[in-house]
Nucleic acid binder design. Structure first.
Lengths: 355, 355
DNA sequence: CTGAAAGCGCTTACAG
DNA sequence: CTGAAAGCGCTTACAG
């Protein structure tokens, strides 16, 4: 391990000069700089990040991204967007995949990340508890959330109530009255803001249309393919059967479609299905869905993180961004059996809001 | 930022004793330890990783995972498996998503990771160039690869030639003779070992059956859904049309299925399709595929990484693990039109090899 | 069981 | 333009 001292000895200058030369600082003669650089390359010098960090005020040039499930398309895509932006600016990304493990969550959020390991954090898909907010704020840790909204920190999200409203109104316009919901109902373990907002939007929209939400039509799908499949089967066993279902994610919608196919139901003649995300596979299933920009949520969040760390900026903590969503009508939704549709079918109509 | 000095002052002992007490080292009285611990909690002390790292020999307790595409299911799943194992052992994971960017690859593999930022690396899905191997080896960096095999480093993979053979033999047994291939043919940018081995296995198996591989039947699918769809359309425009197609990944197979559906072809009556992976969505499409253990590849690779870093073990660099694969027969493959099948249809027959 | 001191590999005023 | 020296926050023999 060649150090700065080796370079100093090799070139006959002081370590201070070597340090300046290496970092391209001014007040170093061109000749000296050249010789130092040459020696660095020749001896294979690489700086020690620990020494650099210690000497220069503890910055790590590292950002933590905390997600619920790397394997879910949504999370992987957010990571992809954020990582790109951060890496371009010279930041490394430390990944923490909680995997729905309470213990892991406690260790990571409650202890580990308080250790000055990172300069900032990006929390994706989970709503930090007040205690977690307190801990992290106490350490002066810059935090940005994706999907959840915490008053103290900048956030990037879509309007999940509006997302639900968009989907349900589409079904109402098609004449459906008996509309089921597949989402996450008991998120006791990991407090997720998103599922709550979507079920709320679902209920409110029904009420606005004069329909009292029926608890029997709200099913647990766990935001997974398997959960969606199981929910689909339970839902199709109800009588009278719902004529339409709003799934809070495309992956659950895929599961419901599978269940419908297994039970020999036609979509959309017997059952209309609408999802959320516009997952990369959604077009494959011809799924009607409410599209949200996922890569962009990662990118924008990363930009907020960078801004928060920039001492130039006065960190305006209350910066909440809502990205636009839009209804994408494909072929899994159609008129309610027997019922007359109330409105025209819209093709990819923009219904989201931009900030 | 309370430091070890604050704790020393607070408790009236030396910093050396504080350090020992905090880390649970022996030769500290119970009373002293208790007082130090109490003060640490009270003052909200957290150690500086940089100082710890610098003082204790430069270990970072961090492992880099380098992948091609986080957003692809395969990579995300490998990450998930590896991250879990590493975190359990107290290691952090630094994620580098190359995203098929040559420039990024050069920066990450050629410069950035040589900076002592991590104690070891896990390289997933890309075959390091001889130069990269040279650089990293020179730095004494412990490296494990997933999917590619480099002589100097431990690797975890499946036998990709056998994977291709399994798929193609399945089609041959069903009486198919005109069998197309969708995979990656020109991987000029990022040298991938996997696509090469699969196309080789495809060709060899055909030759063994007395069929000379037809270059016109080998299509570029880019290992993506879109690439698979496009390849599917091109393939179905051939005349005579192939009766079966082996896709080097399930995602491309999904695309081919979509193309077939769009063109009004029946699967498997008009076209048999077999993929590779057993992607989480494969069952949804009833896709016949060659399953590979993905989470396990991540887990096993992480264990190798841990072993490599363990000074107790003498790093046996030449440790190459091949995980078993198996043919999963679903409903996208069937007898060749007009041709008599040569063998019985096998249901989920194990055909892989375990090490 | 405890402390004084050196050292890890850099950066940063301060002089010159 | 350059160097001597202090300091970043810990750990680690070495004494006692």
């Amino acid at each position: 391990m060649t150090s700065i001292h080796d370079l100093a000895r090799e070139t006959g200058v002081s370590t201070a000069t070597v340090s300046r030369a290496l970092r391209g600082l001014p007040r170093v003669s061109e000749d000296t700089r050249r010789r130092v650089m040459e020696a660095a390359v020749r001896l294979g010098y690489v700086p020690s990040p620990h020494a650099v960090g210690l000497a220069s005020g503890g910055q790590t040039r590292t950002v933590a991204i905390v997600v619920l499930f790397v394997t879910r398309w949504f999370f992987a895509t957010v990571i992809s967007g954020a990582e790109q932006v951060l890496r371009e600016r010279g930041y490394d990304v430390l990944l923490y995949n909680l995997d729905d493990d309470e213990e892991a969550r406690r260790r990571v959020l409650g202890t580990h990340l308080l250790t000055k390991r990172v300069d900032a954090m990006l929390i994706v898909g989970l709503g930090p508890t007040p205690q977690e907010v307190h801990w992290l704020s106490n350490q002066g840790m810059p935090v940005v959330t994706v999907g959840a909204r915490v008053a103290q920190w900048p956030s990037v999200r879509v309007d999940d109530e509006l997302v639900a409203r968009t989907a349900v109104e589409h079904l109402l316009e098609l004449g459906h009255r008996r509309i089921a919901y597949v989402g996450m109902l008991n998120d006791a373990s990991l407090s997720l803001a998103t599922p709550r907002a979507r079920v709320r939007g679902y209920r409110d929209t029904l009420r606005d249309a004069g329909i009292e939400p029926d608890p029997d039509l709200e099913l647990e799908g766990g935001f997974t393919l398997e959960g969606g499949t199981a929910a689909g089967h339970r839902l199709l066993a109800l009588s009278p059967r719902p004529t339409a279902v709003f799934c809070a994610s495309d992956e659950m919608a895929f599961g419901v479609l599978r269940a419908a196919r297994r039970e020999g139901l036609r979509v959309p003649e017997d059952l209309s299905v609408v999802g959320v995300d516009d997952h990369e596979m959604a077009a494959l299933f011809d799924l009607t869905t409410v599209r949200q920009p996922v890569l962009d949520q990662g990118r924008v969040a990363a930009q907020h993180v960078l801004r928060l760390m920039d001492p130039q900026q006065d960190a305006d903590a209350a910066d909440h961004v809502e990205l636009a969503t839009e209804l994408v009508v494909r072929s899994t939704t159609g008129p309610a059996p027997g019922g007359a549709a109330q409105g025209p079918r819209r093709e990819g109509a923009k219904v989201g809001v931009a900030r």
